[in-house]
Design a protein around this nucleic acid. Structure first.
Lengths: 195, 195
DNA sequence: CAGCTGACAAATATTGAAATCTGTCACCTG
DNA sequence: CAGGTGACAGATTTCAATATTTGTCAGCTG
């Protein structure tokens, strides 16, 4: 399209790759498509990313990092830890549900990418449980949460709410009654957390 | 194989279908294979099951029902509800983990079947949460559990422990540390359940 | 000479013709 | 005549030929 203009950067390639994935889906998005979208030869793309897998992995990481970033603000706040925990999960659930509901095809695309790059997902989960650990530690410090090991507890809290953030449950997120189920699980977990 | 002998019953067809699925996997198990294993024509199989899907559904249901049955004993016991709940989940997790670990291919086969027959799975989940509801009600009656609605609470407890019984997490079940994570989640949930 | 190109070999995906399977049903047979 | 058969049409799967894609690299170009 654009014959030549700005210098070819990793960021521009990632942007174009996201667009190609959105348009063609994970199965038909090729490196040649990405290069064409940028008006360069596919050899140039390989100058910035060693393999197609590395390129897709970078796109996946960027996508997951956007979610982490939007939650980190809640961790930084200084209010009631229980309320912050509740807000954190509500925000996460809402964000995932909207991503999945607003553009199911794109979400399905990212689910494929996530399946391809488990190391990135592991890092992302470590990131999120790290945020939870901070909130749990804060709660313990203030004497509102009981936990011998905040990191272990944070992980347990994360695992217990999996139904409301793990993509393997996407289908359930549109089901009626899911909000009540969310409240029930979060309520149960928060009760278990209190001193 | 066996030219003719006992009368052809639904039970014998289900048995043979399980065997064919075990041998050939879900993709290559055909109705003709099942008929051949029984020494009959495939038309006879269609006399007992309207479609291939119905046959596979029946096999799936039988498989899931075996799990439910093995847990119902724990529900019927009359000990400490908290201990029973713990035993119930430990038994479920152990059973699933062994099924998955001992014969991964067969487990993968059943995962495919489960994906094909969500109505059967829904029934199975209703069955299991029903068992949990009985234990929770018992705990409330004895004054050890707090719950405004045992059915809702039971469902929340079931959802919160999904990581240790939902097949979408099979991979995690072999990971080191999974037992600690199980303990952490079950501990958290039981704390949340206590008065 | 840094950055890009495009021809190329090997790996992977697509395609369409042939083979197999599903589900039906008129007709056997003990 | 209850229970079973097997030929059949349409749907689905397989397989091998064909086309595309990935990843490399010698060489072009601004």
């Amino acid at each position: 399209m654009a014959p030549t203009s700005e210098p070819l950067t990793a960021a521009r390639i990632l942007e174009a790759t996201e667009e190609v994935l959105r348009r063609h889906g994970p199965a038909k998005a090729t490196v040649v498509d990405v290069a064409r979208a940028l008006g360069v030869s596919h050899g140039s793309v390989y100058r910035h990313f060693r393999t197609k897998a590395a390129l897709r992995e970078a796109v996946t990481e960027r996508w997951l990092d956007r979610t982490s970033a939007s939650l980190s603000g809640i961790v930084a706040e200084d209010g009631d830890p229980e309320a912050r925990l509740r807000t954190w999960f509500t925000t996460l659930f809402e964000a995932k549900r909207h991503k999945a509901g607003d553009d199911p095809e794109l979400f399905a695309t990212y689910m494929v990418l996530i399946g391809e790059h488990s190391a990135v997902v592991d890092r992302h989960i470590a990131d999120l449980t790290g945020q939870l650990t901070t909130i749990v530690e804060d709660g313990v410090r203030r004497g509102v949460f009981a936990s011998a090991s905040p990191a272990v507890t944070a992980r347990a809290v994360f695992d217990a709410t999996g139904r409301f953030h793990d993509p393997c449950y996407v289908r359930d997120w549109e089901q009626p009654g899911i909000d009540d189920e969310f409240e029930a699980v979060v309520g149960l977990v928060l009760r278990g957390l209190r001193v």
